Structure formats: structure tokens, C-alpha cells
Computed example of a mutant assay.
Amino acid sequence: MKVKIDDIIDAVDFDSDMSESFLNTKTKQVCMFTYEELRAAENDEDISDSADWYCEAVASAKHYLETPDDYLPLPEKYDCNEYRIMEKFISRVIISKQSEMLSQSIKGRGAFRRFKTMLERLGLLDEWYKYRGQKLREFVEFWCKENEIDFE
């Protein structure tokens, strides 16, 4: 059984400060647990009045806590260094004025927001998302190979 690489890419891309993502090495499923779900599972909280999806999520989190050796932490979004990806994208922009404007947009605080705004203004947003998606895929494929994960 192979892992669906798009599931790992989605989990890495969706990474947040409120959750952790793992690969269940036995089932080859990608699992994402919020800290709330992990806390409820760890404290064995009564969630009988909760929605079915939440009960299932807490049950999955409990399984993770009981069998942590079956789970491999997925890389975080920050591990792929999106800032460096932005710099490489900018170096590929042919029109020097556009390249210059994009370079200016990534300096200082708020760089990601300004970069996206500038991409929209220059009509390069679709090109950026395509490039970024390609680099994220390459990063995840490398991670899978390093961890000896078969993927499709």
C-alpha cells in the first residue's frame, strides 16, 4: 500500500500552530489532530454530547497517543522554507521591473502578504501558485524518500 502524496502535500500546506499532522505508517493514512482533540483524548474527556466528527477525531487522537510508534510526524510548512521559494520565484521573473518590485515586497514584516498583493497587481498570482505547488511537491517527495515512504 502506498501513501497518497497529495494527502501529505495538503497536510503540509494546511499546517497551522493549532494542530499536528502525522502519517500512520501502518494504514498509510495522513492524520491531523488539533491540540484540542489531543487534549480531550489525553484527559479522556466526556465528549458523548459532541458531534460525531469530533468524537471520531478524538478517537483517532487517542489511537495516536496509545500507539505513537505507528505515527511519523509530517514536516511542517516552515520546513520547506517558503521565503526561499519566493526568492527563487522572483529570480525567474523575466521582466526586471517586476522582479525588482517583488524583491522589495518581501523585505521586512508582512512580507508574505505584500508579496501576494504584488503578485496580484502584476498578474503573476497563477504562475506563483503553480511554481509554489511544484516546489512543495518536490519537498514532500524528498521527505518521503528520506523516510523510505512509498507514494503514488
Rank of each mutant, 00 (worst) to 15 (best):
M32Q: 15
F33K: 12
F33G: 03
F33H: 09
E36R: 09
L38Q: 03
R39K: 12
R39L: 13
A40Q: 05
A40Y: 09
A41S: 15
N43D: 15
E45H: 07
D46N: 08
D46Q: 03
I47E: 11
S48C: 01
S48H: 03
D49F: 11
S50Y: 09
S50D: 00
S50E: 13
S50L: 02
A51E: 14
D52Q: 06
W53N: 13
W53C: 04
Y54N: 00
Y54S: 09
C55P: 00
A57S: 10
A57K: 08
V58I: 07
V58Q: 04
A59C: 06
S60D: 14
S60N: 11
S60A: 13
S60C: 10
A61Y: 01
A61E: 04
K62M: 09
H63Q: 14
H63N: 11
H63C: 04
H63G: 13
Y64A: 04
L65Y: 05
T67G: 05
Y71H: 00
Y71D: 04
L72Y: 02
P73Y: 05
L74E: 11
P75S: 03
E76T: 14
E76F: 12
K77F: 14
K77E: 07
K77W: 06
D79R: 01
C80M: 15
C80L: 14
N81G: 02
E82T: 09
E82N: 13
Y83S: 07
R84N: 14
M86I: 03
M86N: 02
E87L: 00
K88W: 05
K88R: 11
K88L: 13
R92M: 11
R92G: 14
R92N: 12
I94L: 13
I94T: 15
S96D: 14
K97W: 03
K97N: 15
Q98I: 04
S99Y: 00
E100R: 02
E100M: 05
M101W: 06
S103W: 04
Q104V: 11
Q104K: 13
S105A: 10
S105K: 01
I106D: 04
I106G: 05
A111K: 00
A111T: 05
A111V: 02
F112R: 14
F112Q: 10
R114D: 13
R114P: 08
F115R: 01
F115D: 02
M118F: 03
